[in-house]
């Protein structure tokens, strides 16, 4: 339904009166197939095939060092059940996902709300908050590696100057993963911020005007109207963020030079997969680990899908 300039509401005409379309729609038109074909080919060659091939590899003792390959059945899967490093690094990944998703959602929302209040120089804030997201991961991590140096890093310098105890950002087992979270938040919060900001800008002004007439103050409007109206966006941001955080690898790998951090406390499961397959030459076993992780991601995704569907139903 649309409202015309004259204020009259135009009702879509019944189907029968529409001029009959002479060509079939995009979905039924066989021509559509040819448009999709290039993508399908690339997708099949570089996603579907490797996924299936890798799954097959997980049942063999494939070695990068060229040793003869033989079928080992479920041995790789049996081995990973008893591999403490698999469960430890999986724990790191899950912990990272939890402690990075919360700030990445909350901070980005706060930033979007602040910018949306109408501060001067909107473009400047938008640019500043989003700019780190445009940097390559290696640049981001190298900057933070120097900031977080234990002995002469900027952050510890400031802490020391304020008379506070310095922190072993990169050398303390209990802090290492938090350092990765800090870097990740600084680096990627801009993307969520942008999603929130565009959602905020899509809320029509008239809604707020009506609320203001009813006597709702700024705080009340934010809590009772803005946040509920952002529910859909929050769902989207959380889904995207959880999936992105589960894939944690590059920041942690570069920050600690591939060592996994102090006591291996910042080694995510993907690094264990990488080390097993590419450093230790055990491609078959590494595949098995990655497929167990893959299954976990699917479970998480389905769980989120179910949740959002239920939410959608209750909302409707």
């Amino acid at each position: 339904m649309a409202t015309t300039a004259s204020g009259r509401t135009t009702v879509p005409a019944p189907r029968a009166r529409q001029p009959r379309r002479t060509t079939s729609s995009l979905t039924t038109n066989p021509g559509g197939f040819w448009f999709v074909l290039p993508f399908v080919l690339v997708y099949a060659a570089f996603t579907v095939f490797p996924v299936l091939y890798g799954f097959g590899m997980s049942f063999f003792n494939v070695s990068l060092a060229g040793a003869p390959t033989s079928f080992v059945g479920l041995d790789n899967y049996a081995e990973l059940l008893g591999d403490s490093q698999v469960w430890r690094t999986l724990g790191h990944t899950l912990l990272f996902t939890v402690i990075s998703t919360v700030p990445l959602v909350v901070v980005s929302l706060a930033m979007a709300l602040l910018v949306h209040t109408g501060v001067k120089g909107q473009w400047f804030w938008r640019f500043s908050f989003f700019a780190p997201y445009l940097l390559p991961v290696s640049t981001v991590v190298l900057i933070w590696n120097w900031l977080m140096q234990g002995d002469f890093g900027f952050i510890n310098g400031v802490l020391g100057g304020l008379g506070l105890p310095t922190v072993g950002w990169l050398s303390d087992e209990g802090v290492a993963l938090t350092s990765v979270v800090l870097i990740t938040v600084w680096w990627t919060v801009g993307f969520n911020f942008l999603l929130y900001l565009s959602a905020l800008q899509a809320i029509p002004e008239s809604v707020y005007e009506a609320a203001a007439l009813d006597g709702a103050g700024g705080w009340r409007r934010t809590v009772s109207m803005t946040l509920p109206l952002l529910k859909g966006t929050t769902g989207l941001v959380v889904v995207l963020q959880v999936l992105a955080s589960l894939k944690i690898f590059d920041q942690a790998y570069i920050l600690f030079g591939g060592s996994g951090g102090p006591g291996g406390a910042a080694a995510p499961i993907l690094q264990h997969v990488y080390d097993t397959g590419f450093v230790n030459y055990r491609l078959g076993y590494a595949s098995a680990i990655s497929y167990v992780f893959f299954a976990l991601i699917i479970v998480v995704s389905l769980g989120q899908f179910a949740l959002s569907r239920r939410r959608g139903r209750t909302a409707a």
């Binding site: 060092a65 050398s171 060592s259 102090p262 291996g264 450093v279």
Partner: peptide
């Protein structure tokens, strides 16, 4: 050993133990 040498897991895991001793962990 296949897991030994420059840039290997032996070096990386050994390095973690060295750091843990130096930080008194």
């Amino acid at each position: 050993a296949y897991f030994s040498g420059s840039g290997s897991q032996l070096m990386s895991f050994g390095g973690q133990q060295i750091l843990s001793v130096s930080t008194r962990a």
